[in-house]
C-alpha cells in the first residue's frame, strides 16, 4: 500500500506534492510563475572586469577541478574564444570594444542558472533542478547520458565527460550551491578583486544595476542581460558595449524554455483520446462496406444462379 502510494508520488513529481504541501490553493493555475521569492543572483558588471582570471582560478579550486592546461596567471588564453568545458565551469573571454577601440571588454561565461531552465525541461529523468537559492543543480546519480540537456541549453553551457567509459557526467557551474547553503559566497564572487561580481537577492541585483544606469548613463547600455532572456536568469550582466559584441546572443527572446514544448506535449492526451475514436470509426465503416459488398455479391451470385436455372429449365419445358 505505502509502496504504491510512493510510486504514485514519484510519478506526479516530488517537486509538486511532497515538498510544498499546504499553503494557498490558487497557485496551481496556469498563470505567470514568478520564480522562487528571495532567490539569489549574481550581477556581472563587465565595465569593471579586467580579465584577471582570478574567478576562473577560484572556480577551479572550489570545484576540485583538474589543473588547467595553461596556468591561470597566463592571460594570453583570453585571445582565443573559449567555452565551458568539463575542466572549466567558467571562462573569461576578451572582446574588442566597438565603442572604444583599444579598451577591450571581458565577459565571464558560465551557466546562467535560468529561472526556467531549458536543461531541466529537456531532461527525461529530472536530473536538473532549479533550487530555491537560485542555483540549477545536477544529480549525476540518475543521469542516463542522453545529452539532450546540452542540445536544449540556449547558452551552450553543459559539458559532457566524453572520455569516461562507465561514469560519464554532465558538468557545469553549480552557482556554488553547496557553499551558498552554508552561508558562503560563490568562489568566483569571493575571488574577484575588482568587485565586478556581486551576489545577492535577484531583485536587489536588478535594483543595483538600474541604479548604476541612472548614475552613469554614459557608461552602460541600458539593458540588463538576463532580466528577461529565456524567461530570465539568475546571472545578470550589464555592459558598456552592446551585448552582441561580447558574443552574447540577443535573439533568444523572453519565452521560457518549458513553454516552447508545452504545446507539443499537450497534444498527447488529445491523440490518445480521439485517435481510437476516429480509427474505430474508420474501421467500422470499412467493415460495413465490406459486408454490403459481400451481400451484394451473394445476391448477384444468387440471381445469376436463378437466371441460370430458369434458362436451363426453359428448354426442358419446351421439349
Amino acid at each position: 500500500m505505502s509502496i504504491s502510494r510512493r510510486k504514485f508520488l514519484g510519478w506526479v513529481g516530488a517537486a509538486g506534492l511532497s515538498t510544498t504541501i499546504g499553503k494557498s490553493a490558487s497557485a496551481a493555475t496556469n498563470k505567470h510563475f514568478a520564480g522562487y521569492p528571495d532567490s539569489f543572483a549574481i550581477l556581472h558588471d563587465t565595465t569593471l572586469c579586467v580579465g584577471c582570471r582570478s574567478c576562473e582560478a577560484a572556480c577551479n579550486k572550489v570545484n576540485d577541478l583538474p589543473p588547467p592546461d595553461r596556468p591561470f596567471t597566463d592571460l594570453s588564453v583570453l585571445e582565443t574564444r573559449r567555452r565551458t568545458t568539463t575542466k572549466a565551469f567558467t571562462v573569461v573571454n576578451k572582446y574588442d570594444n566597438p565603442k572604444k577601440s583599444g579598451h577591450p571588454v571581458f565577459y565571464k561565461k558560465q551557466c546562467n542558472h535560468c529561472l526556467e531552465p531549458a536543461c531541466a525541461s529537456a531532461c527525461f529523468v529530472r536530473a536538473f533542478k532549479k533550487t530555491k537559492t537560485g542555483a540549477v543543480v545536477y544529480d549525476p546519480s540518475v543521469c542516463v547520458g542522453c545529452r539532450y540537456c546540452m542540445i536544449a541549453c540556449p547558452f551552450e553551457i553543459p559539458t559532457y565527460e566524453y572520455d569516461q567509459a562507465l561514469t560519464p557526467r554532465i558538468r557545469k557551474c553549480t552557482m556554488c550551491h553547496p557553499r551558498v547553503i552554508e552561508g558562503q559566497l560563490p568562489g568566483c564572487v569571493e575571488a574577484c578583486p575588482m568587485e565586478a561580481l556581486s551576489f545577492g537577492k535577484r531583485e536587489d541585483m536588478i535594483k543595483i544595476a538600474r541604479e548604476r544606469f541612472r548614475k552613469y548613463p554614459d557608461r552602460y547600455v541600458n539593458h540588463i542581460y538576463g532580466e528577461n532572456e529565456m524567461g530570465g536568469t539568475s546571472w545578470l550582466y550589464v555592459s558598456g558595449a552592446p551585448f552582441k559584441a561580447l558574443g552574447m546572443r540577443e535573439d533568444l527572446g523572453i519565452k521560457p524554455a518549458p513553454e516552447l514544448t508545452a504545446g507539443a506535449l499537450s497534444s498527447v492526451p488529445i491523440i490518445v483520446g480521439l485517435w481510437p475514436v476516429l480509427l474505430a470509426g474508420i474501421y467500422a465503416v470499412s467493415k460495413r462496406k465490406e459486408k454490403f459488398a459481400q451481400t451484394d455479391q451473394e445476391e448477384a451470385v444468387a440471381s445469376a444462379l436463378d437466371k441460370d436455372r430458369s434458362e436451363q429449365s426453359q428448354p426442358e419445358e419446351e421439349s
Partner: peptide, 23 residues
C-alpha cells in the same frame, strides 16, 4: 547514451515528464 544500463530510469526512478524525450 552514456550509461545504457540506466535507460529504464526515466520510467521507474524519476520521470522527467516535461521532456519530449520522455514521451
Amino acid at each position: 547514451v552514456g550509461r545504457p544500463w540506466r535507460l529504464p530510469y526515466p520510467l521507474v526512478v524519476q520521470q522527467g515528464t516535461t521532456s519530449v524525450l520522455f514521451e
